[in-house]
Amino acid sequence: MTHAFETLAIHAGQDPDPSTGAVVPPLHLSSTFKQDGVGGLRGGFEYARSGNPTRQALEECLAALEGGLKGFAFASGLAAEDTLLRSVTRPGAHVLMPGDAYGGSYRLIAGVLSNWGISHTSVDLSDLDAVRAAIRPETAVLWCETPTNPLLGIADIAALAGIAHDAGALLVVDNTFASPYLQQPLALGADAVVHSTTKYMGGHSDVVGGAVVVKDAELAEKIGYHQNAVGAIAGPFDSWLTLRGIKTLGVRMDRHSDNAERIVEVLASHAAVKTVLYPGRPEHPGHEVAAKQMRRFGGMVGLRLHGGLETALEVVAKTQLFTLAESLGGVESLIEHPGKMTHQSVAGSPLEVPDDLIRLSVGIENVDDLIGDLLQALA
């Protein structure tokens, strides 16, 4: 029997404990597991780096939510990205990535993997002709974010999958901003999905984690080997917290989207705001593609302000309900200046973000309170 997303979020990989009947799967903290004779493993567990029942429950849930064959849970989103990229590239390979990628992903590829002989090119993924022109014979991965962080750009996942596969490359989609509730990249042709589960999946700003979900058995075997060999796994308590957060993912994403839509509507005509970046706006250049491949448009909003850097820094310092902090996707609203905070690692590079940009992670508080806070900060 197939089940809807909200049902899978609560039940996939989370059957009641068979020995006690506990509705919530137990937290297994053990680092090692008793064997019934040499090689006689109970449930397939021998050592917690290789497998842990709590992590396995999370990984099964992740796979179900993304419609994949196999999920893998990691210590952070960047640990997930690093393990995936090392699984599918070799020295001399080329990675094609967004022109406005997340700063941490850019730092990983340009600053770390480049020392391993991996080259990269940044390109506007909404320009399919530019993507085709940037493909090289050695291109192994087309790395996609949609919506992008922090400029909320939109890429056509199905079209990019066709381009990547024609070139013999894999399409990887960072689905962190949308979450699997709003967007299902594997169903649109992607080969792998990555997440910072720190964000919307965990949803409460109390756990750091990452995930990879794939639909191909051979690719799953490669990633599973590297996950065990490299060891950047999610710990059991982090896995348990992430599972707890996932149970309410659908409810939260609807509220994040509701609040963001109201805030965008109010701020779009504000005298201090030069541009509102939100794929739900009909004026957004990626709106039609986003409407086609997303259920709703999420809780992330970008604002470019008249007055430039000085005004942007003043505004982020004046909010009271929007907390000045990095990260995103929690129940509480956050505000930040990407150029000076989350994306400082791309300063001076082709991916440098505008200095008049502020990023909102719209939480699930009362939306009128949030609007009032933003209006007083912009006054």
Rank of each mutant, 00 (worst) to 15 (best):
A232H: 03
R255C: 12
E221W: 15
T275K: 07
D216H: 10
G231P: 02
T275L: 08
A260F: 12
F237A: 14
I246C: 05
A229F: 09
F237C: 06
L219F: 05
L249E: 11
Q227C: 09
I223Q: 02
G224A: 08
L241F: 02
T275F: 04
R255N: 11
W240R: 08
S239K: 04
Y278C: 06
W240S: 12
L277R: 11
S269A: 10
H226Q: 13
L241P: 00
E265M: 03
K222N: 06
L277T: 09
V230H: 00
W240V: 12
D238G: 11
W240M: 11
P236H: 01
D238F: 11
L267S: 03
R252V: 03
A232S: 10
K247D: 03
I233S: 00
K274R: 11
K247W: 07
V273I: 10
S269R: 07
Q227W: 01
T248M: 05
E261M: 15
L277P: 10
Y278K: 01
T242P: 02
S239H: 07
Y278E: 04
V251Q: 15
L249M: 06
N228K: 00
T275I: 06
R255V: 05
K274P: 13
T242M: 13
A229K: 14
S269C: 04
D258V: 10
S257V: 10
V273M: 04
V273Y: 02
E218G: 14
H226V: 12
V251G: 04
V273G: 00
N228R: 01
G231A: 08
A220G: 15
I263T: 05
T242A: 01
E221S: 12
G245R: 10
P236E: 04
Y225I: 01
H270S: 01
G245P: 12
A234Y: 01
S257H: 07
A271S: 12
K274I: 00
L277M: 09
H270Y: 11
A271R: 10
K247Q: 14
G235I: 04
